[in-house]
Amino acid sequence: MSIARGPTGFSLARVGAMVLRYWYLLSNSWPRAVELIYWPTVQMLTWGFVQLYVAQNASFFANAAGLFVGGLLLWDVLLRSQQGFAFAFLEELWSRNLGNLLMSPLRPSEFIVSLMVISIIRLAIGMLPVTLLAIPLFGFNIWGLGLPLAVFFADLVIAGWAIGLVIIGILLRQGMGAEALAWSLMFLLMPITCVYYPVATLPAVLQPIAWALPTTYVFEGMRAILIDHTFRIDLMTAATALNVVWFAVAVVAFYRLLAAARRAGSLLQQGE
């Protein structure tokens, strides 16, 4: 038999195989697909009506239409990118399939890229209908943000992936006991990253922490567009630079947790 069966480096074919695996899962289970749209829609309706009510009673909010709905939609991009990434990985633990994958030629880097791709697909399924629904219901067209929206989107998605990477690293090392992190960790960020209010609202002690998060710059940048009608390139540059740092830290943390899991033997003890 041959010694090698072909190139053994990074394989887009294996990434494609994993994306296909998650696509099969979504297409075989319509409740999962519906759920992707359900929560963003419920949130958007709730915050949309809050915004309508507040705008009717406060001129500031009347002049800054879309502040809440815009914040919510961008928050959902962050949340869903992290959850899409981490939940796809959790599917392997829930179905006790992780052993098959870890004992296949799939490389960690290929697994990560496939999780990124599927998180974008899940995000698109969940967010596209909601953003379009916000236009007739609340008169807020997030697509009207234009180019800044693309930058906001990229920064939020990369931040979501960075957090997702750390979560799956912890899951590999600690097992299902860490599952709650996948659901809850992002909500710890929500008050600090200032989704619905400016950083200046936070107590002074929390403000440096907020400015250390790339996502804070995105929400500040969104408010600058909606309130002051200016695109703050400085905020976007800072967000992107911080994202590069945080994503690199997340990759290092993931590989260290994976190595620790290999030393501890915890990869063989995955599952419910």
């Binding site: 296909l20 075989n28 392997e92 992780l98 098959n100």
Partner: peptide
């Protein structure tokens, strides 16, 4: 170790064959 429960047998074999 199981294979994904919600995928059909053919889908599972296709995914692993591609891996």
């Amino acid at each position: 170790v199981d294979m994904p429960h919600r995928l059909t047998v053919r889908q599972n074999l296709t995914v692993f064959g591609r891996l």
